[in-house]
Simulated scan of single mutants.
Amino acid sequence: MTALTASTLTCPNCGTQTTGEMPLDACIYFFDCPGCEAQLKPLSGDCCVYCSYGDVKCPPIQEQRACCA
């Protein structure tokens, strides 16, 4: 299975959606919302902001392999 690399993050504070490319071999721990400037961090139990706020989980999780956490 080939992992999807595009994911749309939705800010839980203001609802702004931002589509970005996820790295295949790294986790993104912080993301600054362009709408309200809140700094998003992974929720407890998630390895990255894409797993917490994205419509697609990060590539390591998609491929059911160890992640960066």
Rank of each mutant, 00 (worst) to 15 (best):
A3G: 11
T19V: 11
P60E: 08
C51E: 08
T2D: 09
S52E: 04
Y53V: 00
T8C: 09
G54Q: 04
I28Q: 14
F30L: 09
I28W: 02
C51F: 04
C14H: 03
P42Q: 10
P42V: 13
T2C: 01
G35R: 01
I28R: 08
D55K: 02
L9M: 10
R65D: 02
F31T: 07
R65I: 15
T5S: 09
D55M: 05
C47V: 10
Q17M: 13
T10G: 02
L9H: 05
P23H: 08
G35Y: 00
R65H: 12
D46G: 06
C36K: 01
A38E: 14
V49C: 07
T2G: 03
L43A: 12
N13T: 02
P42E: 07
G54P: 03
A6P: 02
C33K: 03
D46F: 05
L43T: 11
C14F: 03
V56W: 07
C58N: 13
Q62G: 10
S7K: 07
T8V: 07
C47N: 11
L9S: 04
P60D: 07
A66R: 15
F31Y: 15
P12V: 11
L4H: 12
S44C: 06
Y50V: 06
P23D: 10
G35T: 00
I61D: 14
I28K: 04
K57C: 09
A6E: 14
G45M: 09
P59K: 06
I28P: 01
K57M: 07
I28V: 14
T5Y: 11
E63Q: 13
A66K: 15
C51R: 04
N13Q: 11
G15Y: 00
Y50W: 12
C48D: 14
